[in-house]
């Protein structure tokens, strides 16, 4: 029994990591700019498609017909050679194998630019406007982003292979002194969890230990005073929006081997991430992360057959149910600050 529970706990971690990462970005944007960003899921999706694009670029091939070799039915054999391999040799092969992690290098600048364009182009006009209008305009942007991706990459999910070394399962039970094959866990999920931990830790460290982060935190507490001290807080908040976009984007990149990206994955995750943010408490970064993992793990427990036998369909609604209960009994969410979006 203990093994089963522990396994479900582990299973919840990877989904929880994705929720936590998206919710972290959402909260960053809300905490700094005070904007409710319905387009954040679209940023997650755009990140995932950066990985798709990267893989399509590095697997471009040259096709030559080799007249000396014939296929069984007499036509000249096509020889396909990936360009990267012919240019870089072995390194090219490594690049193709590790395309998902490598595409982070492409994703970071792309998402930073997209994020900053979003903020400067549209969202900055909405600071003073009601939250309802912020929701509406970002909702519209999300539709636009989603449809552009659909028209470029098509409507079908595009599977992304994970690196060969990460394809198996890790025998975690052995590490904990149990017998072999009691608790096994796919390596890539473990990688995703660790990766999420690093990113979340990085964001917190950035906010906590750098001067830039200090100014941003001060701005979150009292934007006007920071502005009066002669600091260009707007520019920093713009950069924070870009950073939130990058976090969402690379979260999407690393998630691609677990879920083949399709154009509506952003919306699917967005609804859940909003629930996560609200459960954690609007504007609270630790709350968002904690609630992300909590809901991921709860969802995984709810999908156990034993649980489903007691309450049928609970796996479908558990997250929303928790959100409803928390919102009704604890209006500020788990760790919400007093006075933030309280109504």
């Amino acid at each position: 029994m203990f093994e089963a529970i522990f396994l479900q706990f582990l299973n919840g971690l990877d989904k929880g990591s994705a929720y936590a990462l998206i919710a972290l970005g959402l909260t960053l944007v809300f905490g700094t700019l005070g904007v409710v960003n319905f387009a954040h899921g679209a940023l997650f999706m755009l990140g995932a498609f950066c990985a798709v694009l990267f893989r399509q670029l590095i697997t471009l091939e040259t096709v030559t017909l080799d007249p000396t070799q014939l296929s069984p039915w007499g036509a000249p054999l096509e020889v396909r050679e990936p360009l990267v391999q012919s240019w870089f040799g072995d390194f090219g092969a490594v690049l193709v194998n590790y395309s998902v992690p490598f595409s982070i290098l492409l994703t970071i600048p792309v998402m930073l630019v997209i994020g900053i364009l979003f903020e400067r182009g549209i969202i900055k006009h909405f600071y003073k406007r009601p939250h309802a209008e912020q929701i509406l305009v970002t909702f519209g942007l999300a539709i636009v982003a989603q449809e552009i991706i659909k028209s470029i990459f098509g409507a079908n999910p595009i599977p992304q292979p994970m690196p060969e070394e990460a394809r198996g399962a890790a025998d975690i039970g052995v590490w904990l002194g149990m017998q072999a094959n009691v608790i096994t866990y796919p390596i890539w999920r473990l990688v995703y969890f660790l990766f999420a931990g690093v990113i979340i830790g990085g964001v917190f460290a950035f906010l906590q230990f750098t001067t830039f982060g200090m100014v941003v935190r001060a701005g979150m507490a009292d934007r006007e005073t920071v502005g009066l001290l002669g600091i260009n807080i707007d520019r920093r908040f713009t950069i924070m929006f870009g950073l939130a976009a990058v976090v969402a984007g690379i979260a999407g990149v690393m998630y691609t081997p677990l879920l083949p990206p399709n154009y509506h994955m952003g919306m699917d995750f967005l609804v859940l991430s909003f629930v996560v943010v609200v459960v954690g408490g609007m504007g609270s970064l630790p709350g968002a992360v904690a609630a992300g993992f909590l809901l991921g793990i709860l969802q995984s427990f709810a999908s156990m057959t034993q649980v489903k036998a007691i309450v049928p369909g609970i796996d479908q609604v558990i997250i929303y149910l928790v959100a409803v209960v928390i919102l009704l009994v604890r209006p500020r969410g788990l760790m919400g600050r007093r006075g933030v979006m309280e109504a």
Binding site: F274, P312, G313, Q316, Y320, A323, L327, M341
Partner: peptide
Amino acid sequence: GIYFSILTLAFAQMSYNLAYSV
């Protein structure tokens, strides 16, 4: 406000998911 939006969204998604399953 936003909490109301999220609550209605949550209830609607619940109905949608339940309509497909239970």
